[in-house]
Amino acid sequence: MKALLYREFVWFKRYFPDYLGMWAIQLGFSIGVVFMPAYISGSQAYVLSRLKTLYGVEFTAGGLIAFTLTLSSLIGVVALIVGDVFSTLYYEFRIAETNLTVMEASTLADFLFYNALGRSSLLCFFATLYLLALLPLIKGLEGLFLYLAVLALLLPASIVLGLLSSILALATITLTPVRRPWAIANLIPPILLASVGLYIPVELVPFLLRLVAYITPLPFVVEALQALLLFVGQPIILGYLTTLLVVYTLYLTVPIVLLRRAERWVRS
């Protein structure tokens, strides 16, 4: 336990500046997608009316900022988790070679599951922390509840992402001669995020790109997040949440089954 805590402490100390840098990216995107179209159109009013056409809901300027800020949290969640899983597994399996120790003491599937559970949850918390300061500032008490709802919605998604990234990272590290796995890790988040559109309705993304995104639960998460922000307190949200519950169950079960099978294959 002491060793595990020390490992986490050293890791966070090493990468904390990256988490801060990620907040800058998230804020940059949130502000960019609101102000750049306003600059080009010459008016914020046009952007608001365009959004009304796209989503069928009246937006206010503050509501729009809260909308983009909240959706941008997914950028941090995806980028930090994928990057972290690849670099951790590469270091521990290729450089420190602790994989044998892990497999003697436990099972590979358990190790990866608990890694995804602990590390990904923490990273999800860090990636969304800026919302705790900004949402209450924009929306008051409602903003605080919104933050908690967003966190509750993103936590299972982060665990699923952690598991899926672990499978991909393990396959990359063990089955290919790649010497710079972070080149792959850096590529996955923008592909996934561009494939869900993030700030636009998912169905507007070209079909081929959307197919890539369905490898993960991200399209469902984005739809649920958008619905949560657009239809606060309305029963329509329940439909999205129920879908998400089914999706999370499915996306959690498949990687765990795959990992257990991979474990049997490795050990035999």
Binding site: V33, I40, V47, R50, L54, P190, A194, Y199
Partner: peptide
């Protein structure tokens, strides 16, 4: 990711 929504909102 940045430009698709930006262009769509103009």
């Amino acid at each position: 990711l940045l430009l698709a929504p930006t262009i769509l909102f103009t």
